[in-house]
Computed example of a mutant assay.
Amino acid sequence: MKWQRLLLVFLLIFLSATPSAFANKVSPPPAGMKKMTIPSSVLDITKENTYPNPTQDLPYLQPSEFTKKVLKTSKVKIDNPNLIRMLNESSINNSPLSIGLRATIYLGEWPLNYESMETSPNWQYQKINTNYFDNRGGNSNYQIHYVQETQKVVRGGLTAKVDKAEDVKKMMLLKAMNTTNLPLSFETIIGGGTKKDRVYNIPPKRLGYLYAYAPAINEKGKVTYGEVYLVLKGKQKKIMVKNVTSQGIGAWIPVQDHISFGFLASDHPR
Protein backbone atom coordinates (compact mmCIF):
# COMPACT_ATOMS: atom_id res chain seq x y z
CA MET A 1 0.00 0.00 0.00
CA LYS A 2 2.88 2.36 0.76
CA TRP A 3 4.22 2.29 -2.81
CA GLN A 4 0.69 2.83 -4.18
CA ARG A 5 0.30 5.94 -2.02
CA LEU A 6 3.64 7.33 -3.22
CA LEU A 7 2.67 6.66 -6.84
CA LEU A 8 -0.62 8.50 -6.33
CA VAL A 9 1.19 11.52 -4.86
CA PHE A 10 3.53 11.89 -7.83
CA LEU A 11 0.70 11.33 -10.32
CA LEU A 12 -1.22 14.18 -8.70
CA ILE A 13 1.81 16.44 -8.94
CA PHE A 14 2.52 15.76 -12.60
CA LEU A 15 -1.12 15.77 -13.71
CA SER A 16 -1.72 19.11 -12.01
CA ALA A 17 1.35 20.80 -13.55
CA THR A 18 0.06 23.00 -16.36
CA PRO A 19 1.68 25.70 -18.48
CA SER A 20 1.13 29.11 -17.00
CA ALA A 21 -0.50 31.87 -19.02
CA PHE A 22 2.05 34.25 -17.54
CA ALA A 23 5.16 32.38 -18.70
CA ASN A 24 6.18 34.88 -21.36
CA LYS A 25 4.69 38.04 -19.94
CA VAL A 26 7.16 40.84 -19.38
CA SER A 27 6.89 44.11 -17.56
CA PRO A 28 8.68 47.38 -18.40
CA PRO A 29 11.92 48.33 -16.63
CA PRO A 30 11.40 49.63 -13.10
CA ALA A 31 10.45 53.28 -12.74
CA GLY A 32 12.91 55.81 -11.43
CA MET A 33 15.92 54.67 -13.44
CA LYS A 34 18.67 57.30 -13.27
CA LYS A 35 20.70 57.89 -16.38
CA MET A 36 24.47 57.82 -15.86
CA THR A 37 26.21 61.04 -16.90
CA ILE A 38 28.12 60.44 -20.13
CA PRO A 39 31.20 62.60 -20.84
CA SER A 40 31.14 64.77 -23.96
CA SER A 41 34.05 62.69 -25.33
CA VAL A 42 31.76 59.64 -25.55
CA LEU A 43 29.57 59.45 -28.65
CA ASP A 44 26.73 57.16 -29.68
CA ILE A 45 27.50 55.35 -32.96
CA THR A 46 24.32 53.27 -33.21
CA LYS A 47 23.37 54.80 -36.58
CA GLU A 48 26.92 54.93 -37.95
CA ASN A 49 28.07 51.45 -36.89
CA THR A 50 28.52 49.29 -40.00
CA TYR A 51 27.95 46.20 -37.84
CA PRO A 52 24.34 46.05 -36.56
CA ASN A 53 24.62 44.83 -32.99
CA PRO A 54 21.53 42.96 -31.77
CA THR A 55 19.64 44.78 -29.05
CA GLN A 56 20.35 43.27 -25.65
CA ASP A 57 16.73 43.12 -24.57
CA LEU A 58 16.57 41.03 -21.41
CA PRO A 59 12.96 40.55 -20.30
CA TYR A 60 11.88 41.72 -16.89
CA LEU A 61 9.84 38.61 -16.17
CA GLN A 62 6.50 39.15 -14.48
CA PRO A 63 5.97 36.24 -12.07
CA SER A 64 2.71 34.34 -12.45
CA GLU A 65 0.25 34.34 -9.57
CA PHE A 66 1.49 30.91 -8.51
CA THR A 67 5.12 32.10 -8.63
CA LYS A 68 4.32 35.26 -6.65
CA LYS A 69 2.71 33.24 -3.90
CA VAL A 70 5.52 30.72 -3.50
CA LEU A 71 8.26 33.37 -3.76
CA LYS A 72 6.69 35.22 -0.82
CA THR A 73 7.19 32.12 1.31
CA SER A 74 10.96 32.06 0.73
CA LYS A 75 13.16 33.53 3.48
CA VAL A 76 15.84 34.28 0.86
CA LYS A 77 15.21 36.80 -1.92
CA ILE A 78 14.95 35.17 -5.35
CA ASP A 79 15.69 37.31 -8.44
CA ASN A 80 17.10 34.72 -10.85
CA PRO A 81 15.08 35.12 -14.09
CA ASN A 82 15.69 31.51 -15.11
CA LEU A 83 14.35 30.16 -11.82
CA ILE A 84 11.37 32.50 -12.02
CA ARG A 85 10.74 31.34 -15.58
CA MET A 86 10.80 27.70 -14.49
CA LEU A 87 8.28 28.41 -11.74
CA ASN A 88 6.15 30.38 -14.22
CA GLU A 89 5.96 27.48 -16.62
CA SER A 90 4.10 25.25 -14.16
CA SER A 91 1.37 25.65 -11.59
CA ILE A 92 -0.06 23.18 -9.12
CA ASN A 93 -3.83 23.24 -8.96
CA ASN A 94 -5.78 22.71 -5.77
CA SER A 95 -7.82 19.52 -5.70
CA PRO A 96 -9.90 17.74 -3.03
CA LEU A 97 -7.48 14.85 -3.40
CA SER A 98 -4.55 17.10 -2.42
CA ILE A 99 -5.67 17.47 1.22
CA GLY A 100 -3.42 14.67 2.42
CA LEU A 101 -0.63 15.48 -0.04
CA ARG A 102 2.91 15.65 1.36
CA ALA A 103 5.86 16.19 -0.95
CA THR A 104 9.24 17.95 -1.04
CA ILE A 105 10.59 18.47 -4.55
CA TYR A 106 14.25 19.38 -5.02
CA LEU A 107 14.61 22.02 -7.75
CA GLY A 108 18.41 22.14 -7.66
CA GLU A 109 21.10 24.54 -6.48
CA TRP A 110 20.66 28.03 -7.92
CA PRO A 111 22.20 31.48 -7.81
CA LEU A 112 19.24 33.16 -6.13
CA ASN A 113 20.04 36.86 -6.25
CA TYR A 114 22.75 39.38 -6.97
CA GLU A 115 23.36 42.38 -4.72
CA SER A 116 25.24 45.27 -6.33
CA MET A 117 27.79 47.11 -4.21
CA GLU A 118 29.48 49.28 -6.86
CA THR A 119 28.71 50.26 -10.45
CA SER A 120 31.35 52.41 -12.11
CA PRO A 121 32.27 53.29 -15.72
CA ASN A 122 35.61 52.95 -17.46
CA TRP A 123 35.23 55.12 -20.54
CA GLN A 124 38.55 53.85 -21.94
CA TYR A 125 38.07 50.15 -21.28
CA GLN A 126 39.71 48.98 -24.53
CA LYS A 127 41.45 50.88 -27.34
CA ILE A 128 39.90 49.90 -30.64
CA ASN A 129 41.30 52.35 -33.21
CA THR A 130 43.85 55.11 -33.93
CA ASN A 131 43.51 57.70 -36.70
CA TYR A 132 46.72 59.59 -37.47
CA PHE A 133 47.97 62.43 -39.63
CA ASP A 134 51.38 64.11 -39.86
CA ASN A 135 50.87 67.87 -40.28
CA ARG A 136 54.43 68.89 -39.50
CA GLY A 137 54.87 70.09 -43.07
CA GLY A 138 51.58 72.00 -43.13
CA ASN A 139 50.93 75.72 -42.80
CA SER A 140 47.34 75.49 -41.55
CA ASN A 141 45.14 73.25 -39.47
CA TYR A 142 44.37 69.81 -40.86
CA GLN A 143 41.01 68.30 -40.01
CA ILE A 144 40.58 64.62 -39.23
CA HIS A 145 37.62 62.59 -38.04
CA TYR A 146 37.10 59.08 -36.78
CA VAL A 147 37.17 56.18 -39.24
CA GLN A 148 37.29 52.62 -37.87
CA GLU A 149 40.08 50.85 -39.76
CA THR A 150 39.20 47.24 -38.91
CA GLN A 151 36.30 45.46 -37.25
CA LYS A 152 36.77 45.07 -33.51
CA VAL A 153 35.05 42.68 -31.11
CA VAL A 154 34.92 43.92 -27.51
CA ARG A 155 34.14 41.33 -24.86
CA GLY A 156 33.48 41.60 -21.15
CA GLY A 157 33.00 38.85 -18.62
CA LEU A 158 33.06 37.81 -14.99
CA THR A 159 36.21 38.45 -12.98
CA ALA A 160 36.09 35.05 -11.26
CA LYS A 161 34.78 31.55 -11.92
CA VAL A 162 31.40 30.82 -10.37
CA ASP A 163 28.80 28.08 -10.67
CA LYS A 164 26.03 28.71 -13.20
CA ALA A 165 27.96 31.64 -14.63
CA GLU A 166 25.35 32.45 -17.30
CA ASP A 167 22.64 32.92 -14.67
CA VAL A 168 24.97 35.18 -12.67
CA LYS A 169 25.88 37.23 -15.75
CA LYS A 170 22.20 37.73 -16.57
CA MET A 171 21.42 39.00 -13.05
CA MET A 172 24.46 41.32 -13.07
CA LEU A 173 23.57 42.63 -16.52
CA LEU A 174 20.00 43.40 -15.48
CA LYS A 175 21.22 45.18 -12.35
CA ALA A 176 23.82 47.25 -14.26
CA MET A 177 21.31 48.20 -16.98
CA ASN A 178 18.87 49.31 -14.30
CA THR A 179 21.53 51.39 -12.53
CA THR A 180 23.07 53.07 -15.58
CA ASN A 181 20.22 53.09 -18.12
CA LEU A 182 22.89 52.37 -20.75
CA PRO A 183 22.77 49.76 -23.56
CA LEU A 184 25.00 47.06 -22.10
CA SER A 185 26.12 43.71 -23.47
CA PHE A 186 28.88 41.25 -22.65
CA GLU A 187 29.91 41.47 -26.30
CA THR A 188 29.71 44.35 -28.76
CA ILE A 189 31.18 44.78 -32.24
CA ILE A 190 32.39 47.92 -34.00
CA GLY A 191 32.31 47.40 -37.75
CA GLY A 192 35.15 48.36 -40.06
CA GLY A 193 34.53 51.62 -41.91
CA THR A 194 32.36 53.09 -39.14
CA LYS A 195 32.68 56.89 -39.20
CA LYS A 196 31.76 59.87 -37.04
CA ASP A 197 31.52 63.44 -38.32
CA ARG A 198 33.05 65.25 -35.35
CA VAL A 199 36.17 67.13 -36.57
CA TYR A 200 39.50 67.40 -34.74
CA ASN A 201 42.03 70.07 -35.83
CA ILE A 202 45.73 69.25 -36.08
CA PRO A 203 47.78 72.47 -35.87
CA PRO A 204 50.66 73.00 -38.31
CA LYS A 205 54.03 71.55 -37.29
CA ARG A 206 52.22 68.86 -35.27
CA LEU A 207 51.26 65.21 -35.53
CA GLY A 208 47.65 64.38 -34.71
CA TYR A 209 46.41 61.21 -33.01
CA LEU A 210 42.73 60.43 -32.59
CA TYR A 211 42.26 57.46 -30.26
CA ALA A 212 39.00 55.53 -30.02
CA TYR A 213 38.08 53.42 -26.99
CA ALA A 214 35.23 51.09 -26.18
CA PRO A 215 33.74 52.00 -22.77
CA ALA A 216 32.54 49.44 -20.23
CA ILE A 217 30.83 49.27 -16.86
CA ASN A 218 32.55 47.62 -13.92
CA GLU A 219 29.94 45.88 -11.78
CA LYS A 220 30.88 44.57 -8.30
CA GLY A 221 28.77 42.84 -5.70
CA LYS A 222 27.88 39.47 -4.27
CA VAL A 223 25.81 36.54 -5.49
CA THR A 224 23.82 34.31 -3.14
CA TYR A 225 23.41 30.58 -3.82
CA GLY A 226 21.09 28.05 -2.24
CA GLU A 227 19.43 24.67 -2.66
CA VAL A 228 15.80 25.25 -3.61
CA TYR A 229 12.93 22.96 -2.63
CA LEU A 230 9.23 23.19 -3.46
CA VAL A 231 7.32 21.96 -0.42
CA LEU A 232 3.72 20.76 -0.81
CA LYS A 233 1.56 20.19 2.25
CA GLY A 234 -2.08 19.74 1.42
CA LYS A 235 -3.18 22.94 -0.31
CA GLN A 236 -0.11 24.85 0.93
CA LYS A 237 2.87 25.41 -1.34
CA LYS A 238 6.08 27.09 -0.30
CA ILE A 239 9.70 27.56 -1.29
CA MET A 240 12.37 26.35 1.13
CA VAL A 241 16.02 27.29 0.63
CA LYS A 242 18.83 25.36 2.32
CA ASN A 243 22.63 25.66 2.49
CA VAL A 244 22.73 29.36 1.61
CA THR A 245 26.15 30.75 0.66
CA SER A 246 27.38 34.09 -0.71
CA GLN A 247 30.34 34.89 -2.96
CA GLY A 248 31.88 38.17 -4.07
CA ILE A 249 31.89 38.69 -7.83
CA GLY A 250 32.73 41.35 -10.39
CA ALA A 251 32.16 41.80 -14.09
CA TRP A 252 33.15 44.02 -17.00
CA ILE A 253 30.19 44.82 -19.24
CA PRO A 254 30.87 46.80 -22.46
CA VAL A 255 28.61 49.70 -23.42
CA GLN A 256 27.08 48.82 -26.75
CA ASP A 257 27.49 51.16 -29.75
CA HIS A 258 29.36 53.87 -27.85
CA ILE A 259 32.93 55.14 -28.37
CA SER A 260 35.11 57.34 -26.19
CA PHE A 261 37.51 59.60 -28.09
CA GLY A 262 40.83 61.08 -27.09
CA PHE A 263 42.71 63.56 -29.28
CA LEU A 264 46.41 64.42 -29.02
CA ALA A 265 48.52 66.87 -31.05
CA SER A 266 52.25 66.23 -30.56
CA ASP A 267 55.59 67.60 -31.72
CA HIS A 268 57.07 64.10 -31.85
CA PRO A 269 55.81 60.68 -33.00
CA ARG A 270 54.07 58.61 -30.36
Rank of each mutant, 00 (worst) to 15 (best):
N88I: 04
F14H: 12
G234F: 04
P183N: 13
E227D: 15
I84K: 03
K233V: 05
V147N: 07
N113L: 05
E166T: 13
K233F: 07
A103P: 02
V244M: 09
K127I: 08
N122L: 08
V223H: 01
T130Y: 06
N243S: 13
N178C: 12
S246H: 05
Y213L: 11
W110R: 02
S95G: 05
G193W: 02
K2S: 15
I144R: 04
F22D: 12
M1P: 15
V244W: 09
K238Y: 05
Y146I: 04
M117N: 09
T194R: 03
R270S: 07
K170D: 04
I45V: 15
T119L: 06
D134L: 08
T37C: 09
I253H: 00
P63G: 11
S40C: 06
K237T: 01
L174F: 05
T46D: 14
G157I: 02
K237V: 02
A21H: 09
V153L: 14
I202D: 00
Y132E: 10
K205N: 13
T159F: 03
T37Q: 10
A216N: 06
N129Q: 09
Y213M: 07
M1N: 13
I13T: 03
R206H: 08
K175H: 07
T159S: 08
E166F: 06
I189F: 02
E109L: 10
V70P: 00
A212G: 13
A216G: 04
S120M: 09
A176V: 04
N113Y: 04
S16C: 08
W110S: 02
E115A: 10
I84D: 03
S41A: 15
G138W: 05
K35Q: 14
R198Q: 13
D267M: 09
L6R: 14
S90P: 00
R198W: 09
P203H: 10
G108K: 09
